[in-house]
Simulated scan of single mutants.
Amino acid sequence: MLTFRLRSAVSTGVTLGAAAMGGAVFAALGLPAAWISGALVVTIALAVAGVRIAVPEWLRFLAFIVLGASMGTALTPETFARAATWPVSMACLAASVLGTMMGGTLFLSRVAGWSVQTAFWASAPGAFGTVVAMAADTDADLRKVAFAQALRLFLLVVALPNVLGATGLAAGGVPLPLHASTAAELALLLTVCVGAGLGAAGLKVPGGLILGALAGSAALHATGASTAVLPQILIVPAFVVLGASVGVRFLGTTLGAIRAFFVAALGAFLVAVSISTLFALLAAWLTGDDLGKLVTAFAPGALEAMTALGFALGYDPAFMSAHHLFRFAGLSVALPVAARLLFAAAERQAGATGQDGGHTK
C-alpha cells in the first residue's frame, strides 16, 4: 500500500510539474489560453511516451471549484439582460449538433470505412465519458471512438485559441482582479462554491462541480453578498490541472494507434468544426453577437474543458456554460434514442436484404 501511494505521488508530481512547465512556456510565447493548452500538450506527450501520469480526483475537484468560482465573479446584471438573445443562438446550436453528428458519421462511415456504429459514437460532439459508456454496450470499436473523441478535444483546446487569436476574434483573456480580497471573503466564496458544486454533482447535473460552483459564485456576486475575486495564484494552477486532466485521457494511446486512426479522426474533426462554425456564423448574423464567442460556444468539445477555455479566452462565462450545458444535456437525452432508431433501422434493412437474397437463390 505504501509503495502504491508513493508511486501515485511520484506520478502526480511528474504530471503536474511537466504540465506547469508546458503552460509556462506557452505563456512566455504569448499564446492564448496558454496554461491549459501548454499543460495539455506536454501531458499528452508523456502519455504517448508511456510515462506513468496521473491527476488525482481531489485535485480535479479543487480545480473545478476554483474555476467555477472565478467564472461566477464575472457575471453582472448586464450579462443576464443579454440572455434574451440566447434562445436564438441555442436553436442554432441544436441544429449545429445535428449537423456535426450527421456530417461526422457520413464521413467516417463512407470515406474512412468505419462501421456505422463506430462512426456514430465517434462523431458525438462532446460528452466524452457518456459517449464511451454508451458505446461500450454496442458493437462499436471503442479504441476508435475514444481516440476520435480525445483527438477532437485536444485539437480544440490547442488550436482554437490560436486560430481565434490569429483572426482577431479572441477576447482579452481572464480579467485581472480589481482589488485584493481578504481571507474571510475568499473563505466565504469558496465555501459556498464547494457546497453548490457538491450539490449539483449530487443531483447528477452534467459538469456539476464547475457549473455548481459557478452558480454559487454568481448568486453571491449578483446579490452583492460578496465582491471577492480569486487571485491568479489560484486560477493558474487550476488551468494547469484542467489541461493535465484532459491529457491523461490519452493514457494507453500508442504511436501505432495514432498512425492508424489519425487521418480519419482528423477528417471527422475538420468536418465537425466546419459545420459548427457555419452555424456560429448564422447565429452571429441573427443575433449580432460576437463571432469568436459563438464559435467557442458551439465548439464540439467536453463541457468542463470548453467552458473553462471560453473563460480563459475572456468570453462571457454564463453564455459559455449555458450553451455547453444545453449541448451536453441534449446529447445525453437524444443519443440513446437516435442510436436505437438508427441501428434498428439498419438491422431491419439488413434483415430485409438477407431475406431477399435467400428468396432469389
Rank of each mutant, 00 (worst) to 15 (best):
G104V: 01
W58I: 15
V41L: 14
V132S: 15
M90K: 09
A95D: 02
E57Q: 15
A127R: 08
V48N: 00
T100Y: 05
A84S: 11
V111I: 13
R82V: 00
V131P: 07
I65L: 15
I36M: 08
W121I: 07
F61A: 08
I53V: 04
Q117F: 04
A34Y: 00
R110W: 06
S109G: 05
V41S: 06
M90I: 14
T76I: 03
L40E: 06
A136K: 14
M101L: 15
P32K: 14
V48L: 06
G30F: 02
L62E: 01
A49G: 05
W58D: 12
S109H: 14
V88M: 12
F120H: 06
L29I: 07
F120Q: 12
R110K: 12
W35C: 00
L106P: 01
W121G: 05
I36Q: 01
L59M: 14
G68S: 11
A84N: 12
A39I: 11
A33W: 10
I36A: 02
D137W: 00
V55F: 13
F120D: 09
M134T: 08
A127I: 04
P87G: 11
W58L: 15
W114Y: 11
R82P: 00
A122H: 03
G38I: 06
L40Q: 09
R60W: 00
V41K: 07
A69H: 14
